[in-house]
């Protein structure tokens, strides 16, 4: 998937994602609610980024824009060097199909369809023949450790297994970017660890670029970089370890009743 030009190191490398002063507001009943106030953020290939922030801080809103499912109200979003706002709905669909794999909190597998066909679907939309799509789907299911479950229906699988199927589906078309919005939000701790180990392995071994949204510091700790959002702005962007350390100290300060230093930030 990686071309030579993108593999070159340092500054002249083309970023996978470039978010420049992106704004987003929702309009409901003539009331405009600004959610993102100008987010700046860029990401290289092979990075594993965790996005954190309080509920309502705009994480999902940002993820929807990054996933080309929604359009920003202002600013620029470049995915793989392409200006996304210039594309038609059909072109966006093709871009999502080729460039992005989605993993959702609620798994979002299609009912009444076998696991194998679920995983094969992105390839079907890409115009790959059914036999070839099924072959590659089976391969991908092996990869996530579910090789024997291909002929089952989604509701015959546990939550953790369904999420692994969703990851297989996200990876099947070999996209440069995987977006996961709270992928462990519906799972218990043990299963969450399994899912995170799988994502980490993908990032380490296949240099898979991943953006992950989570509320849990333990989950964010699997990532190498952390982006914290607060009220529609980037509060922290840097190494995950440092960022998480900072969060912990903020929290203990709050628990000890010390004056919060958020205001100064």
């Amino acid at each position: 998937m990686l071309t030579d030009s993108t593999r070159t190191q340092d500054g002249n490398q083309r970023a996978l994602i470039d978010v420049i002063d992106v704004k987003k507001s929702y309009v409901t009943n003539l009331v405009t609610t600004p959610v993102l106030h100008g987010v700046n953020f860029s990401m290289q290939r092979g990075e594993f980024v965790a996005i954190m922030g309080q509920s309502g801080s705009g994480k999902s809103t940002l993820m929807n824009i990054l996933g080309c499912l929604d359009t920003p109200s202002g600013g620029d979003y470049l995915l793989d060097g392409k200006q996304v706002s210039a594309l038609s709905r059909a072109q966006l669909a093709v871009l999502r199909n080729k460039t992005i794999g989605f993993v959702f909190q609620s798994f979002n597998l299609l009912k009444r369809m076998t696991i194998q066909d679920n995983v094969a679907l992105p390839l079907i939309y890409a115009g790959v023949s059914r036999a070839e799509a099924r072959r590659r789907a089976s391969q991908q299911l092996e990869n996530v450790g579910l090789g024997e479950y291909g002929q089952r229906q989604p509701n015959q699988l546990s939550g953790g297994q369904q999420q692994r199927v969703a990851i297989a589906r996200a990876l099947v078309a070999d996209p440069p970017l995987v977006l996961a919005d709270e992928p462990t939000g519906n799972l218990d701790t043990k299963t969450s660890v399994e899912i995170m180990s799988l994502l980490t392995r993908l990032n380490r071994e296949a240099k898979q670029s991943i953006i992950l949204v989570t509320h849990e510091p333990d989950i964010a700790a699997y990532a190498s970089r952390l982006v914290r959002l607060k009220d529609g702005l980037v509060l922290y962007d840097g190494p995950a370890a440092t960022g998480l350390q900072q969060m912990r100290s903020e929290q203990s300060e709050q628990e000890l009743g010390m004056p919060a230093n958020e205001v100064s930030e």
């Binding site: 199909n97 009912k111 589906r169």
Partner: peptide
Amino acid sequence: TREIGIRMAIGARPSD
């Protein structure tokens, strides 16, 4: 509706 959303997310064009 949700199925349509999932399909569109993974690459279904409006024409599909």
